[in-house]
Amino acid sequence: MTEILKAEHLSKIYKSPFFRINHRGIRDVSFSVNEGEIFGFLGPNGAGKTTTLKIIVGIHRADSGRVFVKNIPINDIEYKKHIGFLPENPYFHNYLSAEEFLSITGALYGLNGKKLRERIKEVLEKVGLTKYELRGKRIKNFSKGMIQRLGIAQAIIHEPEIVILDEPLSGLDPIGRKEVRDVILDLKKEGKTVFFSSHILQDVEMICDRVAIIADGKIIKTGILEEMLVKKDGAYEVKLALKESSSFDVIKKFGEISDIEGNTVFVYVDNEESKDKLLETIVKDGFGKILKVNPLHKSLEDEFMRLFNIEEKNEA
């Protein structure tokens, strides 16, 4: 595994121009991203995710610290040819069409002529924009999902080694999220490195190989996702639809009733053995239907909260 992106001791503090009050920023952020992985950058709102990304991408200058992509320092103009960036809630020129916009962004990387046109077609295909009627349609009339796709398209038009996405999944409907997620996974298949930030844990949980968790301008933890996820073995949540309410007593023998909605009951079961027994009883005696059996993990979310609690205690 070779490191493709390396950030060393990045610090950035925003100063208010009038009162010299130091605002939020980041302090001593270091991490590295390996080639070919999906790296999640996770943190609550205002933790410094976007600030870090802006520094990596070259929109802001860090007060101190260094960033390299393939050992090229950030102040080299070559650096930017190796990265593609999708900002949070991207916004493009209202009156241009998708092709025009892509041709301009592509041209900035030195693509032109037939090669550029082919590349635009390829990229639009890849992000799934070709299924829409795009001819002459202005970006103004695009839906949120389409704009997000176009944003990814402009980030990958020059075939960068590393694609940096800022909150690519926020504000999309479930189908849109799925599709954008697929695009990210496709990029990984092609051997591209994806670095993306999110405050939504599920997304990170689903697609990331490694994550860095940032809170209050500091990196709390970096690691492989599988290692962070500790399974709590054997705990289940069972959803049942009962015929009679009198059968509650029977169920209570096997586990705790956590929620009741009319005849629908959620049961929390401690171990696998009692789960099997519960299901068996219900099927055999005909108490009702089994709607859902859900194994309970200790998820990233719990980890996240735990880390936060530790952080707060330390501060206190």
Binding site: V57, F85, P87, Y91, Y109, G151
Partner: peptide
């Protein structure tokens, strides 16, 4: 204001 600048700032353009 609309952050289009982010797109250009991340491109190799001074």
């Amino acid at each position: 204001e609309k952050k289009t600048i982010y797109i250009y700032a991340s491109k190799p353009i001074k």
